[in-house]
Nucleic acid binder design. Structure first.
Lengths: 136, 136
DNA sequence: GTAGATGCAAAGTATTTGCGACAAG
DNA sequence: CTTGTCGCAAATACTTTGCATCTAC
């Protein structure tokens, strides 16, 4: 498996333009889940001539190439994160908007089992938990 | 618990207009998960003067009143269904778009447990499985 | 009677696209 | 070179809103 986005692009035959390199770099360094606007802001600081249309086109391309994951959390714009080994789901703090990533093997298994039960082969899934912090 | 949408409206102090009655009726009778456009089509057959703005306002109001559930499945418009006792999740056939509802107690419990583990109290969640039919 | 609902068209968001200029392989 | 990409602005898709009118309670 290639380790970084640029290598993944090469592996998938995606042409590596200057703009794509910048977007790839920003996404690699982002520990959060930026939406296109936010990504555009970050990208603009490095090259202010990049247009938002290119950012939209690039995240879409990266998503289709399996490089980025797109999330459509409640009531908002689409948000992106780098797709790495090891699937995880999201727990969203409804007060602060903070997003916690978690992995739970048991729940993954259970999902496969359910799809199976209905005669389906699971190709994708989405699990989002929305919660409020408990008082200690 | 009131059994139908009109009773729920009364119970929640939602004014029962002619338009809302029609929308409520259509939603009650719908076994699928129509989007606003589709709902507007169905509603128009009964009263062609109802505007799409009213449909949008009404589904939003009904959602806030806990009468309808809003779903934002992949890559599309928001879709609605009547909210009844007994939570269920969705298994979506990615080929045909068919939606299967399912209930799984085990997965519900597991979700609470995960939220708990991170110090959160679960207020909402979204689980969608996307699958393709298995060959028999 | 009055607060709230409706219809209409116009305004907002988020995202996509046509097109001529330009750059990667 | 040639194919695909970029930037721009205009277009689209879905949803919300201002306002004058109307209706449920």
């Amino acid at each position: 498996m290639p380790e970084n986005i640029e290598q993944k692009c090469l592996a998938k035959g995606v042409k590596l333009t200057e703009q794509r390199k910048i977007i790839a770099k920003i996404m690699s360094e982002s520990k959060d889940h930026p939406d296109v606007d936010e990504l555009y802001n970050r990208v603009s600081k490095i090259d202010s001539k990049i247009s938002i249309a290119t950012v939209y086109r690039t995240v879409k391309l990266f998503e289709e190439s399996g490089i980025l994951a797109k999330h459509e959390f409640k009531g908002g714009k689409a948000r992106y994160e780098e797709l790495n080994e090891g699937h995880h789901d999201h727990l969203i703090d409804v007060k602060s908007g903070e997003i916690i990533e978690f992995v739970d093997e048991e729940i993954e298994k259970l999902q496969k089992k359910i799809a199976d039960k209905y005669g389906y082969h699971l190709v994708d899934h989405k699990l989002e938990l929305y919660g409020v912090k408990k008082k200690t």
